[in-house]
Structure formats: C-alpha cells, structure tokens
Amino acid sequence: MSFKVILPTAFVRHTDGQKQLVSTAANLPGLVSEIDTTFPALATQIKDENGKIRRFINIYVNDEDIRFLGGDTYAFQDGDEVMLIPSIAGGC
C-alpha cells in the first residue's frame, strides 16, 4: 500500500525541491512520524509545540478535508492522493 503526498511551494525548501512524496504510512500520525525521519526540517515547520500539525495547515485526502474522514483515525488507502495546504480565509 502506498499513496502520494503533494506539497505546496511553501514547503519545498525543506524537501530538496520535491513537491511530491510517496508514503506508506497507515494514518496521519504515521505520516507525520515518517516526515520526521525523512525531512526533519519540514516536520519542524508543519508541527506546533505539541507535535500536532499546525492549525493553519489543512490536509485533504482525494479532495476531502481529512477532518470529515475521521482525522487522525483515517486509514490511508492504496492510491490515495494527500495534499497539505496552508489554509486560506478566502472571501466570497
């Protein structure tokens, strides 16, 4: 089982320019630990002081906000496309 992780430009300074990663993590906490090992600088950037993903970063799985899928408990599926995107307030 593996899935793709897509990163915004703001993150790639910590990933040697890579905009996509391939992961085999079981869930979101697993993905964060994986990033801790592979790109520690990125992990520092995306985590808050409690080790959780910062509240201004949204995570989407196949276009759906991971919070609607169970958040940390969501089990990544083979072929999932996971996106990390800084939240934008918008304005209609």
């Binding site: 915004p8 430009t9 949204n58 989407y60 276009d63 906000d65 996106m83 995107i85 800084p86 934008i88 307030a89 918008g90 304005g91 209609c92």
Partner: peptide, 29 residues
C-alpha cells in the same frame, strides 16, 4: 467554495496570477 478556494491556492502557486483573496488577501482585506 472551499474546493474552489483550495484550487486557487494551487493555481496561485503555479501561475503568475494576482488572486485578490489568495496571494493579495492581506491588501484586499
């Protein structure tokens, strides 16, 4: 709208567009 907004953040990353409520948002607000 949230889908559209998310796409715009990706477009703003790739294209040289001035999105008033994305990369120009602090000024707009």
């Amino acid at each position: 709208y949230d889908h559209v907004n998310r796409l715009c953040t990706l477009v703003a990353d790739e294209y040289s567009y001035g999105f008033v409520n994305v990369n120009l948002r602090p000024y707009y607000a």
